[in-house]
């Protein structure tokens, strides 16, 4: 999609230039259209360079921002041009002490209808929208591509899951691209948990361990399945758990900067809808 002279892009460029000129940040992380129409991530440190900024295609910067800040000098501040899911990923990384809150600034852009439909995204906009129009998201559970894996007859679903997971070549692309996967060393590389040298990746161990580690922090950005070279719909692994957290605890990852995952707290601090906690006395019956 060509949006070179759209009002949204102009607004983002203006905000980014102002941020640099007013010295609120030292660099702006975004996509640059370079020589030969090649588009790649770039740290803009001079406001003139920002003329080459573009907003398409979908590119997620959260993990990149984290790594940049880690190797930069102390006091280096970064502004990030980010979509909804990206902003949520940044919030989760801030909560988990991977990015210092005062060293990052977001320039939030809302996604269009086409992008929301392509990602099956429920929330195609950041909480702080700087440019673009907030669009209604779509419910992934209404789409057959998701339903066929998560809802309905068990034996059919087993067959579907096995068919896609058997393609896995254990490239670790999903883990590498996921903004939340930040552990070094990673448990998936430990022979005790995931047997080495087994291709396709041990379905039970590799995929379930990875999926559950993200249970309460996945922001549904889709980077995992975008990165997968054999097209496994990895996001489907997370959707049911995300839905459960919303229904039982009114919790969605990446929305609240202060609230930690409800499954870490007891039932008094983080109540579960529909669960009645008896006094210990009544449980003696």
């Amino acid at each position: 999609m060509r949006e070179e002279r759209s009002p949204m892009l102009e607004e983002v460029k203006r905000l980014a230039k102002t941020a640099l000129q007013e010295q609120r940040v030292e660099g702006v992380l975004g996509l640059k259209k370079d020589v030969g129409n090649v588009i790649q991530p770039h740290i803009f440190e001079r406001s003139d360079d920002l003329d080459a900024l573009v907003l398409e295609p979908k590119w997620l910067f959260a993990k990149l921002a984290m790594k940049i800040l880690r190797v930069s000098d102390t006091g280096y501040r970064l502004a990030v041009v980010c979509r909804g899911c990206d902003e949520r990923a940044i919030v989760e990384l801030v909560k988990r002490n991977q990015i210092a809150e005062n060293s990052i600034m977001t320039i939030g852009i809302a996604c269009g209808d086409a992008q929301a439909a392509a990602c099956l995204c429920e929330r195609p906009y950041p909480e702080n929208i700087a440019a673009g129009e907030k669009k209604q998201g779509v419910d992934p559970f209404n789409d057959e591509r998701v339903r066929q894996f998560l809802v309905g007859d068990t034996s059919e679903r087993v067959a579907r899951w096995l068919r896609v997971l058997r393609r896995c070549i254990k490239c670790y692309g999903c883990r590498n691209s996921c903004p939340i996967c930040i552990c070094e060393p990673c448990k998936l590389e430990d022979d005790t948990w995931v047997p080495k040298g087994v291709i396709p990746a041990e379905m039970m161990c590799f995929h379930l361990i990875r999926a559950f580690h993200l249970s309460d922090t996945c922001v549904a950005c889709g980077a995992c399945q975008d990165a997968c070279p054999v097209g496994i719909p990895l996001l489907n692994l997370q959707l049911s758990m995300r839905r459960t957290l919303t229904e039982k605890f009114c919790y969605e990852a990446g929305i609240d900067r202060e609230r930690k995952s409800p499954i870490l707290r007891n039932f008094f601090d983080e109540e579960e809808k529909g669960r009645d906690i008896p006094d210990w006395v009544s449980s003696l019956e």
């Binding site: 988990r96 002490n97 991977q98 070094e184 930690k260 995952s261 870490l264 707290r265």
Partner: peptide, 11 residues
């Protein structure tokens, strides 16, 4: 190995 994520502190 610790990444400082704070899960242990919360739980």
């Amino acid at each position: 190995r610790c990444t400082g994520c704070g899960n242990c502190v919360a739980v």
